[in-house]
Design a protein around this nucleic acid. Structure first.
Length: 438
DNA sequence: TATCCACAGGAAATCAGGGTGT
DNA sequence: ACACCCTGATTTCCTGTGGATA
C-alpha cells in the first residue's frame, strides 16, 4: 500500500504507469470496434450488397446509377454496406475516379449547408462561408464546380439519415428535389443520390415529385441481425481487436444475445464488447469475462442517460426537473399529466432568476423529445369530459435522475423545492378522477 | 346523443444572432 | 453602413379529437 509518513494514502503516478505497462494486455488494435471501421467482409449482408451492386454496376460503364434508398434500423449495416460498395467499385473502375460524398443529415442539416458541404468537399481548398450567401448562388457555384472538377466522372451523394431532412417538410423536399435533379443542369458531370434512413415512414412526407425520383428503384431493406449473425460479426472484429486468449468463452455470445434483444443493433454489440474490454483493461484483468459484459451493459446505459440529460438545453432540463419534483413527494399524484408539468415548470421559472418562461406549445415539444429519448414515456390519453392529455411516466431511476440533475448549476438548488401545486387540492381532485379513469 | 374538456400538434410568422458582398 | 441571407428557437394562430358527462 502506498502511504506517506502520516500514513495517508498517496498516489504514485509514475509507479502506476509502470505497473500498468507491465500488467495484462487486452487490446491489440482498438480500431476494429470503432463505428467508423469498415471490415474486409460484411457478414450476412450478401443479399443487400448484391442488390446495391446491381443497381450501381452501371457506374462501371460510366453511367450514373439511378437514385437509391436504403432502409433499416440503426446498426443493420446500411452505411457500412454503402461504404463497402464504394471501395469495391473504386477497385474495379480504372478509367475514372468516382467521387463519394457522405453527408450525415443529422449533422449537416440544412439545405444551404448541404450544398456548401458538397462544394467544400469537392473543391478541397476554396471553402464557402458557413452562412450569409443566398442559396441559389451556392447552387450555381456548385453546378460549375461539378462540371469543372468532377468533370467526366460520377459523383455519388450519400445522404445518411435522410429522414432528418424531411423533418422540415418544405425545405427538406426542396433540397431533395434540387439534388435529384442536378443532372438536368449539368453538362458533363453526372450525379447519383443514395439515401439512407432508419425510418420507413419518412416517405410519407416526401413530395410526389421527389418520391418519383428517389423511388425509381425499389428500396433496399436491411433487416436486423439475429444473435447468431451478430456473433459472427463480433468474432471477426474480436480477432482483430484483442490478443489471443483474452476472451473468456461465451463472452461473444453474451454480447450478441444482449444486442439481439435490442433490435439486433450491431453497433451496440460492438460497443458492448469494446466497453467490456476497456473495463477488463482498467481493472488489470487478464481476461474479459461475462461479468465485464454485464458491467459494460450497465455503464453504457447509464452513460447514455447522463450524457443525454447533461447535453439537453436548460429549458428541457427544467421540464425534467418539474417531472422529478412532481414525483418526489408523498403528496405527488399517481398520474403526471402535461398540464401539471407546465404549472410546476412555470413556477420554477419564476423562482430561478433570469429565466424566460416558454409557451405551453414549446414545452409540449420538449416533452415529446424527452419521450423519444426514452427518459420518460408519454401516452396520449383521452379522459373524456376531462379532456385529452399526455400521461407521463419517468422511465429512469429517481436516484439516478437526482444525481444527474444535481450536476446542473441552477437546478441543483431547486431539487428540494416543493411546488405549490402539490399543496393545493386541485391535484388531489384531479388525481382521484384520473385514477378512476385510467 | 350532443357537448365540451384539456390538451395535441401542424403551419406560418417572428426574433435574434451569425454572416455576406457592395 | 446597408440591404440582404441563413438558421435555430420560439411564438402565434390554429384546427383536431376521444370519450365521460349532462
Amino acid at each position: 500500500m502506498l502511504t506517506n509518513k502520516n500514513n495517508e494514502f498517496e498516489f504514485n503516478i509514475d509507479k502506476f504507469y509502470k505497473d500498468y505497462l507491465k500488467g495484462p494486455k487486452i487490446f491489440k488494435n482498438r480500431n476494429a470496434l470503432e463505428p467508423s471501421f469498415i471490415p474486409q467482409e460484411l457478414p450476412h449482408r450478401d443479399k443487400e450488397i448484391q442488390k446495391v451492386a446491381e443497381i450501381t454496376a452501371c457506374a462501371l460503364m460510366g453511367d450514373a446509377p439511378p437514385s437509391l434508398l436504403c432502409y433499416g434500423m440503426t446498426g443493420t449495416g446500411k452505411t457500412a454496406t454503402i461504404r463497402y460498395i464504394s471501395q469495391k467499385l473504386a477497385q474495379q473502375i480504372i478509367d475514372y475516379k468516382p467521387w463519394w460524398i457522405y453527408i450525415n443529415c443529422n449533422v449537416v442539416s440544412t439545405p444551404y449547408r448541404i450544398l456548401a458541404h458538397i462544394y467544400n468537399t469537392i473543391s478541397g481548398r476554396e471553402k464557402l462561408p458557413p452562412t450569409g450567401l443566398p442559396k441559389d448562388i451556392i447552387f450555381k457555384k456548385l453546378l460549375g464546380l461539378l462540371d469543372q472538377t468532377v468533370g467526366n466522372s460520377i459523383c455519388f451523394l450519400v445522404l445518411d439519415e435522410i429522414d432528418k431532412l424531411i423533418e422540415n417538410k418544405k425545405l427538406g423536399n426542396e433540397i431533395l428535389y434540387d439534388l435529384t435533379n442536378l443532372n438536368e443542369d449539368l453538362d458533363i458531370c453526372r450525379t447519383s443520390l443514395i439515401g439512407i434512413s432508419n425510418d420507413l415512414k419518412f416517405r410519407d412526407n416526401l413530395d410526389p415529385r421527389v418520391l418519383s425520383r428517389l423511388g425509381e428503384e425499389p428500396p433496399i431493406i436491411f433487416h436486423p441481425y439475429n444473435a447468431t449473425q451478430l456473433g459472427d460479426i463480433l468474432k471477426d472484429r474480436a480477432d482483430i481487436t484483442f490478443y489471443e486468449g483474452v476472451l473468456e468463452g461465451g463472452v461473444i455470445n453474451l454480447c450478441a444475445a444482449l444486442a439481439a434483444k435490442e433490435d439486433g443493433d450491431a453497433r451496440k454489440a460492438l460497443q458492448l464488447l469494446r466497453k467490456a474490454g476497456e473495463l477488463a483493461q482498467r481493472a488489470q484483468n487478464k481476461m474479459i469475462t461475462a461479468k465485464h459484459v454485464d458491467e459494460a451493459q450497465n455503464e453504457l446505459e447509464k452513460d447514455h442517460v447522463v450524457e443525454y440529460i447533461l447535453g439537453m438545453p436548460f429549458q428541457a432540463q427544467l421540464i425534467l426537473s418539474s417531472i422529478y419534483l412532481l414525483s418526489k413527494y408523498p403528496e405527488s399524484p399517481d398520474i403526471i399529466i402535461s398540464g401539471d408539468i407546465y404549472e410546476v415548470y412555470a413556477e420554477l421559472c419564476s423562482i430561478i432568476p433570469a429565466i424566460r418562461k416558454l409557451t405551453e406549445r414549446r414545452i409540449s415539444d420538449y416533452i415529446n423529445e424527452l419521450a423519444l429519448s426514452g427518459i420518460i414515456s408519454a401516452i396520449i390519453k383521452s379522459m373524456g369530459y376531462h379532456g385529452r392529455t399526455k400521461i407521463i411516466k419517468l422511465e429512469i431511476d429517481m436516484s439516478l435522475l437526482e444525481e444527474i440533475l444535481k450536476k446542473v448549476n441552477k437546478i441543483e438548488k431547486i431539487l428540494d423545492y416543493k411546488p405549490i401545486l402539490l399543496q393545493s387540492d386541485k391535484v388531489k381532485l384531479k388525481n382521484n378522477v384520473f385514477k378512476r379513469l385510467v
